[in-house]
Amino acid sequence: MSRIVYFIIAYAFWLLLTLSVDWQHLVTGAVVCGLTTMIFGKISISRARKLFQPQRYFWMVLYVLVLLWECLKANFDVAYRVLHPAMPIRPGIVKARSSLKTDVARTCLANSITMTPGTLTVDMNGEGDLYIHWINVKDDDAQHATQMIVKRFERILKRVFE
């Protein structure tokens, strides 16, 4: 099952690369994507069933919007801090805890945090503890940091991936 899904994704990628419907490209693409699936299919997709649940795509779109909005807000925040003559920053690394279970969701969360200006995921361990570099540490406590940085993404991510 997951192999087939992977093959389809790979084939879509191939079509995107070649941008042509010449039969030679199509046939070669099938062979090459088959090879890719054989080698990498095993490690790449674990729970293929989730890809066929349409509500997840809806949440995905929503998530992108939320992420953009957060990025925008954070942009202004960082710009303000940099331009302010007193430079009101308090950089530091805080620990936060994510309640997400799957690796994909956690990675997505960590990357979203990194993408948002002002925060940057430095490390993540297997239990879902995130170490985040924060330009303006408002609270040293892990609980509160989680609340401020992680929660805003987490709720939607849970619906997308879990």
Partner: peptide, 22 residues
Amino acid sequence: MTPIVKTVTRGMAGMIFLYGIY
């Protein structure tokens, strides 16, 4: 490496391979 790298690698390695073959 961290789970972040591992997960991204799982997704990307195949595509990099495919791109190389392309």
